[in-house]
Design a protein around this nucleic acid. Structure first.
Length: 216
DNA sequence: GCGACAG
DNA sequence: ATCTTGTCGC
């Protein structure tokens, strides 16, 4: 089966209508999830991590690996990674609840306002936030001491810095741009390039890919 | 046509 | 994202 970009575009445009931008009320949040995928050629491993932000520790985590058939195409990352992420998420949701999910990539800072963070959030009807190391779409506008990520005149997220590290935080689903930024700042340790839930998912998925690749 | 381009 | 060991530096 071939991957048809025109069909994928229509799917994104249609699904983007289901994205909700609303306050999450992050003050009492406890379990923050993080997901990421690592690869070895066309073999990928997704990891989902549940992180307790009140106790600063990992509650549990899951892994799901499989061959991937769709290549990385800018603007269509979700079609490559979502199949693995969905499996890892279903596994972790059978063990714990997640109050919000951090996804490695963008949410509304996307040509069709439907980056992978929004995609996963809508599919699971769960609050989600995009965390990316590079910009895909949108412009950066400084407002005082903050740098907003703007798409079609709307602030969809913020650029935040930590030592030498810079990350782009955007609305995925069921959260506001300000809350997304606050929540990421709250889980971002100074020594690392990414907030804990995603940093750990990245570390676990990468180790798993290497472990399995060594057995081949 | 040219340049940009999450992971 | 990944290819890739040890090594230079804070």
């Amino acid at each position: 089966m071939n991957f048809l970009i025109e069909n994928a575009k229509r799917a994104q445009i249609t699904l983007s209508k289901y994205v909700v931008i609303a306050p999450l009320n992050i003050s009492n949040l406890k379990i923050v999830g993080g997901v990421d995928v690592s690869y070895k050629k066309d073999f990928g491993c997704a990891s989902a991590v549940a992180y307790n932000i009140q106790q600063d520790n990992v509650v549990t985590y899951t892994i799901y690996c499989d061959k991937v058939s769709i290549p990385y195409i800018p603007g269509f990352l979700a079609f490559r990674e979502a199949p693995l992420i969905i499996k890892a998420l279903n596994k972790i949701l059978s063990k714990t609840r997640l109050d919000v999910l951090f996804v490695n990539g963008h949410g509304l800072a996307h040509p069709r306002k439907f980056g992978i963070a929004s995609h996963i959030g809508v599919v699971f009807n769960m609050p989600s936030i995009g965390v990316a190391k590079n910009l895909l779409y949108g412009e950066i506008i400084a407002y005082g001491d903050k740098k907003a990520i703007v798409v079609n005149g709307n602030v969809v997220g913020y650029v935040i810095t930590n030592n030498n590290h810079k990350i782009y935080v955007t609305i995925g689903h069921k959260v506001t741009a300000e809350e997304a930024m606050e929540l990421v700042l709250k889980t971002w340790k100074k020594a690392y390039a990414l907030p804990e839930p995603i940093r750990l998912a990245d570390e676990i998925s990468r180790k798993e890919v290497r472990r399995l690749a060594a057995k081949l």
